[in-house]
Computed example of a mutant assay.
Amino acid sequence: MAPAYLDQSTVTDGVPRPRVAHLQPGDGPDQWLGQRPDMYQTDWAPRPRRRHRRRGRGRSVVVVVTAVAAAAGGMFAVSRADRPATAPVAIDAAFSSVRPAATAADRRPARASSAPAPRTKIGTSASTPRPSSTPRPPRPVSGLSQAQMNNAATIVRVARDRKLPRRAMLVAMMTGLQESSLRNLANPKVPASLDEPNEGSGENFDSLGIFQQRPSQGWGTAAQLMDPRYAAGAFYERLLRVDDWESRSLGDAAQAVQRSALPGAYADHEDRAAEVVDALL
């Protein structure tokens, strides 16, 4: 009678299988009594499981299956045991943030701009500010303040706009120095004048402004007379109405326009008026 033999083998995952006894035909049931192998005993000690490697393989399978499902545009779910889950999971959103592969055009280097760089003059800086178009205020002369000098500049500017000679400027400047010291004065007797920009106030009748012109005498409204440019223009209009103003003395020409109670006072400012006018021409 042929003896029986044992088959020992293991599965590929490293877990040993139990031994199996193979009997030949004709063997009695009691022949191997007491020698029957333990079906649950292994022939060697089991190998320690490499958990990290096993988990890594499982994750790799899940990633591969998920990528294939995403490419097919379908919905698929894989459980940890590599079996389909009972509830489908949408996977399109998982790859929505993935950037597409760069194309050949994206990998091309950016071309340098062909626009020429702005030219800068030698000895200057690109950050140097441009000069302002606003003219600088005139430098005060003859003891005048900046506000007084600004009013004097307005008197000269209006005359030049009207193409009037220097003599007309001197007559107007002497008048302004005598009447208000070249200040734009308001008057409490004319309340509207107090709402306009001013450099003080006076109380001579209803006289206003640099030339102390009176609204009641037809020189203009309070707002107009408190405007130095308007006041200078109104003075020149009255001066040009005097037929012989150019042949008269400067003081007499000013008196012919103003009709002041002190007719000789204007001549006292002739030298100072000439200094101011010449500084502005």
Score class of each variant (00 low, 15 high):
A2R: 15
A2F: 09
P3K: 15
Y5K: 12
L6F: 14
S9A: 04
T12I: 10
D13S: 13
G14C: 11
P18F: 05
R19K: 14
R19T: 13
A21R: 15
P25G: 07
G26A: 01
D27H: 14
G34N: 06
G34I: 02
R36D: 07
R36Y: 01
D38Y: 08
W44A: 12
A45I: 13
A45M: 15
R47K: 12
R47N: 15
R51Q: 15
R53S: 13
G56K: 15
G56S: 13
R59L: 11
V61F: 13
V68A: 11
V68L: 10
A69Y: 00
A69M: 01
A77Q: 02
A77C: 02
V78G: 06
R80H: 14
D82V: 13
A85I: 03
A85T: 10
V89I: 02
A90N: 00
A90E: 06
A90S: 10
A90W: 00
A90F: 00
A93Y: 01
A93T: 06
A94K: 03
A94C: 10
F95K: 01
F95W: 02
V98N: 09
P100R: 14
P100S: 04
P100L: 06
A102Y: 04
A105V: 06
A110V: 06
R111Q: 00
R111I: 01
S113G: 07
A115K: 13
A117K: 08
P118Q: 05
P118Y: 04
R119L: 09
G123N: 05
G123A: 09
T124P: 06
S125F: 11
R130T: 09
S132E: 14
T134N: 04
R139N: 04
R139T: 11
R139S: 07
P140M: 06
V141G: 04
L144E: 00
S145V: 02
Q146K: 11
Q146I: 01
N151L: 02
A152E: 11
I155M: 12
V156R: 10
R157N: 14
R157G: 11
V158H: 12
D161P: 00
R162N: 06
L164D: 03
R166W: 06
R167S: 07
L170Q: 06
L185S: 04
L185P: 12
N187A: 12
P188F: 06
P191S: 03
A192H: 14
S193H: 03
L194M: 05
G200I: 05
E203Q: 13
E203G: 11
F205S: 12
F205K: 14
F205T: 11
F205P: 07
D206N: 15
L208D: 04
G209T: 01
I210C: 08
F211V: 03
Q212C: 04
Q217M: 13
W219E: 03
A222Q: 00
A223C: 09
Q224I: 10
L225M: 05
D227G: 08
R229L: 12
Y230M: 02
A231P: 09
G233M: 07
R238N: 03
V242D: 01
E246M: 11
A253L: 05
R259D: 03
A261H: 13
Y266F: 15
D271W: 15
R272Q: 13
L280D: 09
